[in-house]
Amino acid sequence: MTAQLGRARAALAATSYSAASMILPSLIQAAETTAADAAGRVRDRAHALLADAYVLAAMLATKAHTDAVAWVAADRALRAARASGDVLAVAGAAREVAIAMRRQGRHASATGLLADTAARLDAGTGQTDSLVLARYVNLLCTAAYASAQAGKPHDADTFISEAELAARRLRAAPPALGIPTPATVAAYRISIHNALGDPSASLTVARTVDPGPVADLRTIRQVLHRHRPRLGRLRGPRPCRRRAAGGRAGSSGGGPPAIGHRVHLRHAVPARTRPAPAARAGGPHAERLTRERP
């Protein structure tokens, strides 16, 4: 199961969403069976692995803009993580629940969950484990963006400034999937400025970024591409460029798959975890998640 989880995580990182969605259903079923039948440390480990699998399912559903599926998968992830007692699993699952809340417009609940979870990590010491510190930075970045979308610039700046300080302590850590760097935090600050209606500040941040690893440079480029219409208005009109005769790179199918595999992505979460038609707006789930907030 650990190998399956690694393959699913690698496929998601490579934007191979269809491949990831083919792995997750059997992985989730196997982890649930093990968690139900095992005891002791084996059961705890199965719950933690199940939580990580549901986190990936929630991320896939978010990529496909199926927010109700993402909400249910994140809820399942948080339940499994709490059953495992693994603080890293709880932090990762809580972040996905908060993202689902934010996408449903529940910014205050999302920010509260993120802040409470980050505080429980106790990551303020110099001896903090690098993986715990990485989760701490990710939680703060997500809280900052949720605050910006809620129109609270002071809260957003408080969260992202703390994330920047914590990310500097990760410079000595080896690059790994999910380990943020100062460039990762800078990408969030760019998005925060745009969410607050200040794209000129985004350009200022982008010009000062030390991209570091290639993964972080790709993150910066994705953020800038997302906000290109606003940034283009600041830079003024650009000369028209003719498209190359062969079309854009990747248009022949050689590029990464588009975020459009909705049928496959829905199968990433077993059918019994999907919301009933009456619950697709997230109402009952929202109340349940609020009550479960740590």
Rank of each mutant, 00 (worst) to 15 (best):
Q104W: 08
P294E: 05
R168T: 13
V269H: 01
S18A: 13
A89L: 11
R82F: 00
A144P: 11
L88F: 07
A31S: 05
R207M: 03
G236N: 06
R235H: 14
A215N: 00
R221C: 01
A11E: 01
V69G: 07
R168C: 11
P211H: 07
D44S: 14
Y17G: 12
M101N: 07
E292V: 02
R274M: 12
A68Q: 12
L78Y: 08
R218W: 01
R95M: 08
A144E: 13
D37V: 00
T15E: 15
L224F: 02
R103V: 14
D198V: 13
T204N: 14
R79E: 14
L196S: 08
A286F: 03
S161G: 07
S161K: 07
I220T: 13
R9Y: 00
D75W: 06
L56I: 04
T184V: 00
S84E: 02
A244M: 09
A19S: 08
G124F: 07
R235I: 15
G247L: 05
E162N: 12
A176E: 06
S200A: 15
Q222G: 15
R272N: 11
L88A: 11
I99F: 08
H285P: 05
A119W: 07
V97A: 00
A46T: 00
A173R: 07
G246A: 11
R120V: 08
G112S: 03
D198Q: 04
R171H: 12
T128K: 04
F159V: 02
P256M: 11
A70C: 12
H285G: 10
K63Y: 12
A30N: 04
A123Y: 09
K63W: 10
R103Y: 05
A30D: 04
A186G: 11
A20S: 09
G197S: 04
A215C: 02
L170C: 13
V263S: 15
L217W: 02
A46V: 01
A77Q: 12
S200V: 07
R238G: 14
A195M: 10
C141F: 01
L139A: 06
R238E: 15
Y136V: 12
P199N: 00
A148L: 10
D52Q: 13
A115M: 02
R280L: 15
G253P: 10
E164Y: 00
L78H: 03
A39W: 01
G232E: 14
R243A: 14
A74G: 01
C141R: 04
L133F: 10
I192M: 14
A11D: 05
V205Y: 12
H261C: 00
V87W: 02
M22P: 03
R95F: 04
D86E: 06
A176K: 02
R266K: 08
R9D: 03
T219I: 14
Y136R: 08
M101R: 10
H285R: 10
H261M: 03
A80Q: 06
A286H: 05
T34H: 02
G124E: 13
A57W: 04
A187P: 01
A187G: 09
R238K: 12
A83L: 15
N194S: 02
H227S: 15
V87E: 12
M101V: 06
I192C: 03
A183W: 00
S200E: 13
T184N: 02
L289F: 01
A163Y: 00
T142H: 12
A281C: 01
R280N: 07
A108R: 06
R102I: 03
Y136F: 14
L12N: 05
P257R: 05
Y188P: 05
G40L: 05
H227G: 10
A89D: 13
